[in-house]
Amino acid sequence: MEIQFLDELTCQFCGRKTKKFYGGNSACFSCFKNLPDNDICIIKPELCHFHEGTCRDGSFAEHHCMSTHIVYLALSSEIKVGITRKNNHIRRWIDQGAVQALPIMEVPTRKDAGDAETFLAQFIKDKTNWRKMLKNEVSDANLYQTRKELIGKLPKHFQQFVLPEMEIYHFNYPQIEVPDKIKSLSFNKEQAIRGRLIGVKAQYLLFDTGVFQVRKHTGYKVSVSI
């Protein structure tokens, strides 16, 4: 399989061609600077400034941020805490390469979720080790036990949002082989990605020559040949 970069970048928000992307969201400079999708609170929801009257787009915030969010545990390499909008949780867990996931809380806003995640991150990781995740090096930690321990640490004002214990979600991914070494493939380093496709996990295509993160290359015009 070969993925060839055709030397053309397109902003994923406005559709205009651009010479380079800004931030980490495949945006042209104008969209990076002005759109709510690229505000700091999208990456760090605990920094939400909606109620300060400085939100870039109130209607966006009402739909995206002032809505129910799930605080969860996911196991992809080790157990991590994360957040996602309600009804988007399955997609989010698959996107992270989780093999197991378990909700903890359901909160009314994205900021509440960010505050809860920031608090729990004192006791547990909030990032995935993507190399271990792609090599299927998964901890044998118990999600139920971890959930119970973390709930016991929550401040009183978060206790009202704790969900009843439910069954653990399990996920499998199509892989015919596990890479011996995790080499990152990118159009920032080479014009074309070539190799035998041996798996798909999270945001990655796994080749026998390395791994290619698809989302990172949103907005790149390519040709694909098999």
Rank of each mutant, 00 (worst) to 15 (best):
P179A: 08
K19H: 06
L102Q: 03
R194S: 08
H157Y: 15
N25V: 14
P155S: 09
A27K: 04
N38E: 14
K20A: 10
V162Q: 09
G219E: 08
I79S: 09
C55D: 11
Q203T: 11
R85G: 15
I151E: 12
K19I: 05
I124N: 09
C28H: 04
G23H: 10
L6C: 07
A27G: 05
I176Q: 14
T118V: 08
E117T: 08
N88P: 00
N142P: 05
F5L: 02
M66D: 13
Q145V: 12
T10P: 03
M166N: 09
R131I: 14
R215M: 06
R147Y: 01
T146A: 07
E62R: 15
F123V: 04
L75C: 07
S26Y: 07
Q100D: 07
K80T: 14
N129M: 02
I124E: 07
G152Q: 12
A27R: 05
E106H: 04
L150P: 08
D95W: 00
R147W: 02
L143E: 00
K86I: 00
V71L: 08
S186V: 03
D126A: 12
V81A: 09
H89I: 15
T109L: 06
M166V: 14
S30V: 10
L150F: 04
E149R: 14
G114F: 09
K19T: 10
R215S: 14
F161Q: 08
I70P: 04
K44I: 09
D37H: 15
A202P: 02
V99F: 03
L75V: 05
I198V: 15
E190I: 11
L206I: 15
R85S: 14
V178G: 05
P179Y: 03
S186Y: 09
K181G: 02
E117V: 12
F13E: 02
G210Q: 06
R196D: 13
K201D: 03
A192E: 06
Y144M: 11
F158A: 07
L205M: 15
L75D: 01
D57V: 04
G152T: 09
L163S: 04
S67W: 00
R196N: 15
K111A: 11
L206R: 02
R91H: 12
L75S: 06
I176W: 03
W93T: 00
E149Y: 12
V211Y: 10
G82A: 10
C14A: 10
P45Y: 07
L73T: 07
Q12E: 10
G195P: 14
F187K: 03
F119G: 10
